[in-house]
Amino acid sequence: MPHSRGVPSEQQKLTTSLFLGGARSGKSRLAQAAAEAFDGPLIYVATAEAGDAEMAARIAHHRADRGDRWTTVECRIDLADAIAAYEQPVLVDCLTLWLSNLMLGGHDVAGHTQRLIDTVRERAAPLFLVSNEVGLGLVPETPLGRAFRDEQGRLNQSIAAVVDHVTFVAAGLPLRLK
Rank of each mutant, 00 (worst) to 15 (best):
D52N: 05
S9M: 09
G172D: 11
V45R: 04
R66I: 04
D118N: 13
E133R: 06
P8W: 00
L95K: 09
S28A: 05
F19E: 01
E141Y: 10
G105M: 05
V169K: 06
C94G: 04
F148I: 04
Q11D: 14
D108E: 11
V92F: 04
I43T: 14
V7L: 14
L20D: 03
L18R: 00
I77P: 03
A46M: 06
R76W: 04
V7S: 12
L116Q: 08
F38K: 04
L102P: 02
N132F: 02
L95Q: 09
I117R: 08
E54D: 13
P2A: 05
V169P: 08
T113H: 03
I83A: 04
G137N: 05
A85L: 03
G67A: 06
A170F: 11
T167A: 15
A56W: 01
L99Y: 10
G22T: 06
L18C: 02
L144P: 00
A110S: 13
D150A: 10
A34H: 12
T113D: 07
S100T: 15
L20R: 01
A161M: 10
E54H: 00
G26A: 07
L20S: 03
W98V: 01
F38R: 15
G172T: 03
V73N: 08
E151V: 07
P140N: 10
R154W: 09
A53G: 00
E141N: 11
D118T: 12
L20M: 03
K13V: 07
M55S: 01
R5P: 01
A23S: 14
R24K: 15
L97P: 07
D39M: 10
A125H: 08
E54N: 02
V73F: 01
